[in-house]
Design a protein around this nucleic acid. Structure first.
Lengths: 265, 265
DNA sequence: GAGTGGTCTAGACCACCCC
DNA sequence: GGGTGGTCTAGACCACTCT
C-alpha cells in the first residue's frame, strides 16, 4: 500500500500501523486528493473496476486510504469532471463507458445546421479493414516506429440517408490484434464501445485538428460529390489512461447541411 | 437582501434578523452554493466589481450572505471553472478580463501545425468599419430584428508574415455605438479587450460552427490565394453574462501550415 | 430502512503574498 | 505578521434508490 503524505494534522499511518517517517513535504507539494486521484486511476488501469461497474463507496475508499470522506470526494469529483467516473446519487460511482447510449458518440461534433443541437445518431457503412505499416504521420501520432504494423479501417457515416463523413481509422495491430471487418460489423454501436469491450481499452480524451481541403477522387466517390469539393478534414488522436495515444483517425466531412459544433469557454 | 433557503440546519435569517418563514424546500431544490453563485453573477452584471478588480474575500462574502466559507468557496469554484473569476492564492479572487496577456486570445483556436501547441500571437490589419442592417442570419444569431442597425468590422489576422484569417465581425450598433476604425486601431490588443474597456461588456463564452468552403473573390484577394481555394469557415456567436449573444463573427481561415485545434473530453 | 451520493458547517492548519 | 486562498477533517443532515 502506498503511503500518503498529508499537508498537515496528524501524520497518516500505513495500514500496518507503522508510524509515518519524518516526511519533509518535499520540493513539489501534492495535495492528498491528488494522490488519491492517482491511486484511483492506477486501479482503473489495472482493471480493478471495469467499465460500467461501480467503484467502492466514498466511505469505503476513505477507510481504505485512511483519509476523510471529503478528501476522497474531491478526488472522485476530479475524475468525474474528466468523464472517467460517473456519479449517480443514491446508487454509487461508476466507471464511465462508451457503451452507454448517452456516451455513444461522445466525441462526434458534427451536427445538423437546422433544428436543435441534439446529436443525430448516424448509421455506419463499413468499407474495409486492412493491415499495413505505420506512415510517418501515424507513427508520430501513435508513438510508434515508422513501418510498425497497423490496422486501418474505413467507413462512411450516413446522416438521414446522406453520406456525410468518410473515416479512416488507424490502430496499432499489436494493441488491437485480429481485428476483422466481420467482428466490427457485428458489434452494434460505436468503434470505441467495440474496442472497450473487445480489448479493454477505454478512450479518455482526444485531440483534433481541423483543416479545409479539396475532395480527392476516393473521397468524392464515397461522399457522392464532385472531385475538388471543399471538405472539412478532421484529424484526431485519441488517448487512453496515462495520456497514451492509441487511435489515429482522419475524417473527411461534407459540411453541407451539417457543421462541426464547438463550445468555447 | 435576498433571503437564501438552505437545505438543512437552522433556517438562515435575513440581515435584519427577522426569523425565516416556514419555507418548504419547494418543488425545485436549489443548493445554497448555487444561489450564491447567482447572487455573485448578479453583482458582476451590476458592475459591483469591474474586470480586473478583486472581489471581497471568502470570509467577507460568507459574512455577507450568512453562510459558511465552504459554501461561498463552492460558488466561487464554479465561477472560476467558467473562467468568470480567477483565484490567486495569497492575493484574492479577481474578475476575469480579456485584457490580461494570458487571456488575450482565449477563443482563438488556430495554431501552427509545426512546433509546440503554444499559441502564436498574430498581428491585425484592419480593413474597414461600416454601418449596416442585420441580415436574417445575424439577426437570428444576435436576437435582433432583421434590419436592425449593426456595425460590421473587417480585418485580416497575419501569422508570421502570412495573412491567414479574414474576419468579419458584426455587433449591434445600439449596444456598441460610435465604433470607428480609428478607435479600434488605436486600442492595442484584442477586440474583446477593446469592447470590455470601451463598453463594459465582457465576453463569457462562445459557440462556433465550422465548415469547409471555397474562397470567393474577396477572400482570395485578402488571403493572397486563388479563388476556389478551400477555406475553413468559422462562424462564432459570443455571449456575455446571462447567455446574451452580443457578437456574430465569420472567420475565413487558410489552413495551410495552420489548423484549428480542439480538445475533446 | 439501509446505503449511497450531495450539501452544509465549524474549525484547524498550510502555502502564498505583501507589507 | 496578517490577510488570502487551499487543504483536510469530523460530523450532521438531506435527497435519492433499491429492497
Amino acid at each position: 500500500m502506498t503511503v500518503l503524505t498529508s499537508m498537515q494534522n496528524q501524520p497518516l499511518v500505513a495500514p500496518n500501523n507503522s508510524p509515518m517517517p519524518d516526511n519533509i513535504p518535499g520540493p513539489s507539494f501534492r495535495p492528498l486528493y491528488d494522490q488519491i486521484k492517482i491511486l484511483l486511476t492506477q486501479s482503473l488501469i489495472a482493471g480493478e473496476w471495469k467499465p460500467g461497474e461501480a467503484i467502492p463507496s466514498e466511505m469505503d475508499l476513505a477507510a481504505r486510504y485512511q483519509v476523510s470522506q471529503g478528501t476522497v470526494r474531491k478526488a472522485i469529483d476530479a475524475l468525474a469532471g474528466d468523464n472517467i467516473l460517473i456519479r449517480r446519487q443514491g446508487k454509487g460511482t461508476f466507471v464511465a463507458t462508451h457503451t452507454e447510449p448517452k456516451h455513444q458518440y461522445r466525441f462526434l461534433r458534427i451536427i445538423p445546421d437546422k433544428g436543435s443541437k441534439d446529436k443525430v445518431h448516424p448509421t455506419t457503412n463499413f468499407i474495409d479493414v486492412k493491415r499495413g505499416k505505420a506512415s510517418a504521420e501515424v507513427a508520430r501520432a501513435l508513438d510508434l516506429k515508422v513501418g510498425a504494423p497497423v490496422t486501418a479501417l474505413r467507413r462512411v457515416l450516413v446522416f438521414a440517408g446522406t453520406p456525410i463523413i468518410l473515416d479512416e481509422i488507424v490502430l496499432s495491430s499489436v494493441l488491437f490484434p485480429n481485428l476483422t471487418l466481420e467482428k466490427i460489423s457485428e458489434s452494434r454501436g460505436s468503434i470505441y464501445s467495440f474496442l472497450e469491450t473487445g480489448y479493454g481499452l477505454r478512450m479518455i480524451r482526444a485531440e483534433e485538428r481541423l483543416r479545409a481541403m479539396a475532395a480527392d477522387a476516393a473521397a468524392a466517390a464515397y461522399l457522392l460529390v464532385a472531385e475538388g469539393t471543399p471538405l472539412l478534414c478532421v484529424d484526431r488522436i485519441a488517448f487512453t489512461y496515462g495520456d497514451k495515444p492509441v487511435e489515429w483517425r482522419r475524417g473527411l466531412c461534407l459540411t453541407d447541411g451539417y457543421s462541426y459544433y464547438n463550445e468555447l469557454a
